[in-house]
């Protein structure tokens, strides 16, 4: 399949009072047209910042120091501000985490939906509103024409998230970045939104990057999963490989932490001991080493590179950054 997005060695850091906070440390991955990628990690592991860096949607304190992002072969990291604005409005759609605060309370749903296309596609407001109504129907909002004329507070959380999705789709983007779009919603609505995104993806043939900290949510939804830790990509493989034969101790820990129905009442839920690394100082070794049960000496002195090994299913390689060979349980040379 044709490549839509290619990210090479991306570094993003934040300027803070006493130096720099290294949020993204050399992230590389690619995305095919129509492919769906899940990005997983704990809070503060750099998953949101790295995906926001793709379209340079960063606070002023952040800067991309290295690397390049190629969307359809066009370098976004070095593009002009106006070009980035145009790309945001036409090729990339964003769905945000908190639908309750992501809509301007002073603007009607309709006005807000068409903001992007009126500006970027130079179509009339009436045409844009028709288009908006069409997409509202597509995301499952009944009485769409009436809703266009309402304010965000008149909608429920699930409906607002549907509006956010419609807003992201309205530009007919080739890439949609969904930043934990279901975190603020309850479980039934979450399932509805997941189903919605799956069906829309088939219908519109978009590439989707779905950021989440909930590995179980991605099952049956995405094609590939990328696991991030401390601003590094630690593992990346197709869905089945990640679930059935994870190769990084962090991924193994994440999968073990998913409570199942078989978990006995009263027993402790499994967890990964320790906390995510401090991003102020760059680690000399593997960022996960302090919490890792498979740790060997080399882990503390050298950062393992992301290396490809043959995948168990399919021909896509399984990429992992670990000094320990989890298949053979030996130390790599």
């Amino acid at each position: 399949m044709a490549k839509l997005l290619e990210v090479n060695n991306l570094h993003t850091r934040f300027k803070v009072r006493n130096g720099y906070l290294h949020a993204v440390n050399g992230v590389s991955f690619s995305l095919d047209k129509g492919e769906m990628l899940g990005v997983v990690g704990e809070s503060g592991c750099g998953k949101s910042v790295s995906m926001m860096s793709l379209i340079r949607l960063l606070p002023p304190a952040a800067q991309i120091t290295e690397g390049e992002v190629l969307l359809d072969g066009e370098d976004i990291t070095h593009a002009s501000v106006s070009r980035v604005n145009a790309i945001r409005g036409s090729k990339v759609g964003m769905i945000f985490q908190d639908p309750m605060t992501s809509l301007n309370p002073f603007m009607k749903i309709g006005d807000q939906l068409i903001e992007g296309i009126v500006y970027h596609k130079k179509i009339t407001k009436a045409d844009a509103l028709q288009q908006a109504a069409k997409y509202l129907k597509m995301v499952g909002i009944s009485n769409a024409e009436h809703r266009l004329n309402e304010y965000p507070h008149q909608l429920s959380g699930g409906m607002r998230q549907r509006v956010m999705i419609a807003m992201a789709l309205l530009n007919e983007p080739s890439l949609v970045i969904a930043d934990e779009p279901t975190t603020a919603l309850d479980v039934t609505i979450q399932a509805q939104i997941v189903e919605l995104v799956k069906s829309l993806r088939e219908k519109l043939n978009m590439s989707i990057i779905w950021i989440t900290h909930d590995l179980s949510l991605l099952a049956g939804m995405v094609d590939r999963i990328m696991v991030m830790y401390g601003g590094y990509v630690v593992e990346e493989a197709v869905l089945d490989d990640i679930y059935k034969s994870p190769l990084h101790p962090y991924t193994i820990g994440l999968l073990k932490s998913i409570p199942s129905l078989k978990t006995e009442a009263g027993s402790r839920l499994p967890s990964i001991p320790g906390a995510p690394p401090n991003l102020f100082s760059q680690p000399t070794g593997c960022p996960f080493a302090p919490r890792c049960t498979y740790r060997v000496d080399r882990c503390q002195s050298e950062v393992p590179a992301l290396t490809a090994v043959p995948g168990e299913t399919g021909e896509r390689p399984h990429r992992v950054a670990c000094w320990v060979d989890m298949r053979g349980k030996g130390v790599k040379q």
Partner: peptide, 24 residues
């Protein structure tokens, strides 16, 4: 978030100030 959301749609800064910041 809605200011960030508007930025993500590629809405220019002048329009963000006029339609998002000032009314709020």
């Amino acid at each position: 978030n809605y200011v960030v959301a508007a930025e993500a749609l590629g809405v220019p800064t002048s329009k963000i100030v006029r339609r998002y910041v000032i009314p709020n």
